[in-house]
Design a binder for these strands. Sequence first.
DNA 1: GAAACCCATAAGATACGACGAATTCAAGAG
DNA 2: CTCTTGAATTCGTCGTATCTTATGGGTTTC
Lengths: 233, 233
Amino acid sequence: MSTMGRGLHGRVLDTLGPEITAGGYPPGSVLRTDELAQRFDVSRSVMREAVRVLESMHLVESRRRVGVTVRARSEWNVYDPQVIRWRLAGADRPHQLRSLTVLRSAVEPVAAGLAARHATAEQCAELTACALGMVAHSRGHQLEGYLFHDVAFHRVILNASGNEMFARLGDVVAEVLTGRTQHDVMFEDPDPAAVTLHVQVAEAVRERDAARAEELTRQITVGALQELDVLAP
Amino acid sequence: MSTMGRGLHGRVLDTLGPEITAGGYPPGSVLRTDELAQRFDVSRSVMREAVRVLESMHLVESRRRVGVTVRARSEWNVYDPQVIRWRLAGADRPHQLRSLTVLRSAVEPVAAGLAARHATAEQCAELTACALGMVAHSRGHQLEGYLFHDVAFHRVILNASGNEMFARLGDVVAEVLTGRTQHDVMFEDPDPAAVTLHVQVAEAVRERDAARAEELTRQITVGALQELDVLAP
DNA sequence: GAAACCCATAAGATACGACGAATTCAAGAG
DNA sequence: CTCTTGAATTCGTCGTATCTTATGGGTTTC
């Protein structure tokens, strides 16, 4: 999935990107295009394309007579899905997971409020179906099915908000939820309170109660944050 | 500023990027690398690098035997600062401005709450200084000075939140605030209520009152949204 | 006539070599 | 000690040659 074979330069990025985002090269480190090309056994053209992509992510900066210098973390385009994936796969996964969860706690309640105002009848139905699916898979170690509906639920909310920037966080949320299930709490059934909250959010959206949808979603994200605090204090 | 002379490929992007984000090519349109290279009078190598960057932004997709196809809006990396700049400079500037303001309304209150918990003494001082600067420039058409302190204020809040993803929205907020001043309401003095709110947020952060900082910031962003509603219903 | 197969071809993908341009650093002149 | 100059280095750009692959059409086959 992460390794879409989109050419040689993509293959190079799959190695070099994670190395950089993992902090393998401290900020200010210089890489030489030629050396990299040799290391990955690709032509300079391909290496240059890879460097350009890293540059567009603000991970590195290419300057004449000096080389490709790694930029400070604070300059990285941390919203780039590719960068997010790299970081989630790397060493500071916990840190990235916390950042994303905090972001969720800010965005999703507002998105839910907007969804209550803008959701189409179809989206309301979809939302209810997702919530029911979560309920149906909430007991007896059916975590795969639960996760599937959970991801779908949050995606619908974000899409129904009508804000394109919220909608684009669907993949991020999916990655966070998937990571949580596959890493941390794969063994135990989901919190019943969380399941109930999802059902209630679906209700609130259906009834166009924006304030209630927002508040309930806030409780969901607070729960997610607390869960994170327990696992990584 | 937007045209950093980072080479020929950057020059190409400065033209082609805005064209695409402005919707100049409907989704599914195909561009040929060779034709583009001819059009911009650059070598294929340079053109390929430019295409790679556009590809990393998910604006286009390059496939063999087909060409470079423009992707649907819903796939664009709308958080890429470059994409944001291009869109703000183009036709759907109002739409982009609204998306960003909604995003602000979700993020900034939470960021302010976190800032109240995590801000260093230095950041508190800086925040207070910014708020006072806003007050000092709030009357008599000193909009440049007001804007300067306003931008700094929100930057400090986002940085002090301690969340890197919030911090990276500083540039976006700066762009929104700057754009608002330079485009829409350049003529009249800022809303006194907004100025007061900023001062109060600085206070709340200094006093570690997270809930109050969050609520007050929410009022600021609500004001920004209302202002937008007045200008673009 | 429909489905499976095959090939010519168009487009990007990769490689390589040469030259240009800019920036750093050090040596030398004042 | 400062300023200038120039050489070294590394990225930047270009052009060409060749490889790879997906597509579209033509052919065969059932």
